[in-house]
Amino acid sequence: MTSASRPDCPLLTDHTVTELARAGEIVLDSWHLYDGAGIAVDRHRSRFTAHLQEVFGVDKDETVAAYDHALAHLPSDGSWFPGFVWTSKGLRLVLRPFPVEHLRSSTTLLLQGTLDARKRPDIKGIDYLSQLYAHRQATDAGYDDQVLATGDGSLTETVFATLLIAQGGELIVPDAPRLAGITLEVLGERAGRPVRLDTVTPSRLLAAPAVFTLSSLHGVRVVERVNDASYQPNPALRDRLQEVLDEARGPVADLLGEGTQLPCASC
């Protein structure tokens, strides 16, 4: 979709998520769109709706209508990373291309005991600016992302992903305040391995036989290094978990139904 062909719709914006977050409180939803399809998009919409009811007091029907309106404007081909951003003025769709060659199947993590200072780690977007700062600390130090910790030193997640330890046939996730990730939810139902919540300390993470991160953009990524500690990557397990996710990918158009009407006259 080019700016020349883009409809004159108030939901579509040239602002970035960062600019919208600087202008006021936001709630965010985002996921990878590839050739008009996404993984468990209906669940993303439901989580977004629930968060908006709590933060902004927005009626469910209004949220769903706005979200579906935005979905109807998504491209049907190519690789994209759409951001659904609810602001004080309503929904804004931030649509940016994300070439598939930029998708990563591995990652490196900085672990330095950084306190998870988010006010609402369970709601995506509210603490976006502080997350950017923590993420910049990691990239400035030469890492892809940073692990966050609670006040007692146990780990929560990375700045932009869920931590996942594979050990003894189980998938272990930190039992700590964090975002209820859709990617983790799908894996928990489909992977054929039990997912268990447990306390994850820095020493346990460093001693783990295999560590992964989960996100709605990159899916499953193998952690190759935490600080100076290198892991023996398990790409075969990563590929199996990613295949499970890909099986949950479906056309966005299926969520809209035939004859869906766009609510703004300019569309």
Rank of each mutant, 00 (worst) to 15 (best):
H44D: 05
T49S: 12
H51W: 07
H51C: 05
Q53I: 07
E54D: 11
E54A: 14
E54V: 14
V55F: 00
V55A: 04
F56T: 07
F56L: 09
K60D: 08
D61P: 01
D61L: 11
D61K: 14
E62I: 15
E62H: 14
T63C: 15
A66K: 12
A66C: 07
A66S: 12
H69P: 05
A70D: 02
A70V: 12
L71E: 01
L71V: 14
L71P: 06
A72W: 15
L74I: 13
P75D: 00
P75Y: 07
G78Q: 02
S79F: 08
W80V: 06
G83H: 15
G83K: 13
T87A: 10
L91E: 03
R96D: 04
P97R: 14
F98A: 09
F98L: 14
F98W: 14
P99D: 00
P99G: 09
V100K: 13
H102I: 06
L103S: 05
R104T: 11
S105K: 15
S106Q: 12
T107V: 15
T108R: 12
T108E: 05
L110V: 03
L111S: 06
L111R: 11
L111I: 05
Q112I: 09
G113S: 05
T114W: 07
D116A: 13
R118T: 02
K119V: 14
R120T: 03
I123E: 01
I123R: 14
I123M: 12
G125R: 10
I126A: 04
D127F: 11
D127N: 10
L129D: 03
S130H: 07
Y133I: 15
A134E: 00
A134G: 03
R136W: 10
A138V: 10
A138Q: 07
T139Q: 04
A141R: 10
G142D: 08
D144R: 15
D145Y: 13
Q146Y: 07
L148N: 01
L148T: 00
A149V: 03
A149Q: 03
G153A: 06
S154G: 05
L155E: 00
L155T: 00
E157W: 02
T158D: 01
T158E: 00
V159M: 06
V159W: 02
F160H: 11
F160L: 12
F160P: 03
L163F: 05
L163D: 02
L163T: 02
L163S: 05
L164D: 05
L164S: 08
I165C: 06
Q167C: 08
Q167N: 08
P174I: 02
P174D: 00
